[in-house]
Amino acid sequence: MEEQNNKDEQLTNAQLELQADAAGPGEVKRISYAGLIARRFFRQKSAVVGLTILAILVLLAIFGPFICKYDYTDPDFTAINVAPNARHWFGTDGGGFDLFACVVHGLGRSLVIGLTYAILTTAISAIVGTAIAYARGWGEKIGMWLLDMLLVIPSFLLVAMIVRAASGTQGWIMLILGLTAFGWIGYARTLRTMALSLRERDYVRAAKYMGVPSIKIILRHLIPNLGSILVIDTVLCVISGINSETAYSFLGLGIKAPDTSLGYILSQGSSAMLSAPWIVLIPSVVLIILCVSMQLIGDGLRDAFDPYSRAAGEVADEESKKDEAKKAAAAAAGNAAGSHHE
């Protein structure tokens, strides 16, 4: 390759580069982005543990009802308030309902609510947040004012007003809608902060100067480049969805009989804590395992997306990146402060 290079003396610049490419030092490792993330994710033990636990819980929620003799709706009047035993694996409650059946059903509810809420919230907040950031000028000012205004009143209170109307077996849908209606606002604000630096990226400006329409820029450039944040947010959102379900149902505002959920079981059990402690302890343990496994997955994803978060003492990062992280952390703190009421 090199000999040739010297022989035909007069090269164009592009030809020279093409030759350099061909004789280049290494084959570029062709690994897709998703593949890279997956590899980094599965390298972490804690994340794999989290994912395994979650998988077991999901399987339990799906197949649990088939392996249990009892249904969460029909009580066993011969066994009221019995401790866990061979017949009733998790015991029964004061009404004779089999706790295993209830917990499995509640776990399914929690997972469905958490996931649906997380996906809806992330989608809405991503679109609104980036659109506001991209709008600039008056559009941005008005959008931000509206977001701030909607955040003035803690969303916990507003959601409570809506979900109190939830009842019956369809109550959980109302709960998801209520949670989503006010849950996206804080995230939208965070994502807008993230998008602020993205909108200044040259590829976004380049697309604008090519005449690409705004909607397309938002969908093609801004949202995909928030991808890692959105994935992590979705996972953490699942946790907060589950937490909210528990809180509202415990307060008697979310899921009510005849339906059941982990929060509802807790509220029923809390009055009989001395006589039948298993009624509160078992759903509590399930909730903790569920939330911690999601947290482990979220942490694993964060480290997979951002290898620097683990590399001890990384050489000075881009300044902008740091700012982003700081703003994000501050925004997250704001969100957390907002949810302390729970």
């Binding site: 982005y33 990226r201 040259d202 590829y203 400006r205 380049a206 100067y209 090519m210 005449g211 093609r220 450039h221 995909p224 480049n225 991808g227």
Partner: peptide, 20 residues
């Protein structure tokens, strides 16, 4: 008009969308 008017930015890291 934009068809005939294009721009090249300073930082090639930032001028190409890393996800594309």
């Amino acid at each position: 008009l934009r068809r005939n008017l294009q721009i090249i930015f300073q930082d090639p890291m930032s001028s190409l969308d890393p996800r594309m």
